[in-house]
Amino acid sequence: MNPLLIASINFNLIEIDNDKLLLQVTNNQIKQSTSIPLIAEHINNSQLKQIHNVVAAENEILIYYKKESFTELLNELQKFSNSKIIPDKESFKIEVCFEFGEDWEAVCNHTKKKREQIISELLKCKFPLINYGFQPGFMYLDDLDESLSVPRRSTPRLKVPAGTLAIGGKYVGIYGSESPGGWNIIGRSSHKIIDNFEIEHFPSIGQKIEFIQIGKQSYLRKYGK
């Protein structure tokens, strides 16, 4: 199959089971002009009638499509060939209670910084959302200062509460739902999947995430445990 151009990036195509299409960035594009998850989100949000689902990874996109709509799907995707996809510039605010951080000791020891100093640095930053994945609603946030990077725990926890804010290597992560996890817990946020959650209220890829600190009592009153 010929490569497909989307948002000025060439993708190789692999058809799987006649209902999935894997788009892989071709090898000759060392540094893409735009992030692959951002393109995937654009395709997902376009709500093409041929598509059931879209999944994004660092360098590929998996599209679940309706059987027998392959040709139609390709025609639709070709319309995105020169699309300029720009992330939402408005920052997205997420409330965080740092008192729920269970791994402050490990984080402080590794970074050789005091907890208050780390919190102050985190509150000053705006972290771009680079992708969802791993678990329902899990957010990968980029641009963590190297001095705050902390390796993942050697033994993952069996249960990490929904909303947890954590550091894993060079990323900040937010657990949208309760799951096992090996990142270092530094707080709990308002981003969690509860009974009446709405995907429409999730931040979009590339959007800058800003943390707003709140106290434990306020957190519990607004968001529960």
């Binding site: 995937a40 989100e41 997902n44 059931h52 689902n53 879209v54 999944v55 994004a56 679940y64 969802y132 994945g133 791993f134 678990q135 329902p136 609603g137 899990f138 949208g176 995907i199 999730f202």
Partner: peptide
Amino acid sequence: DANKHMFYGFPF
């Protein structure tokens, strides 16, 4: 039916 929100990390 598969979950409709796989983009957000929901399993199939």
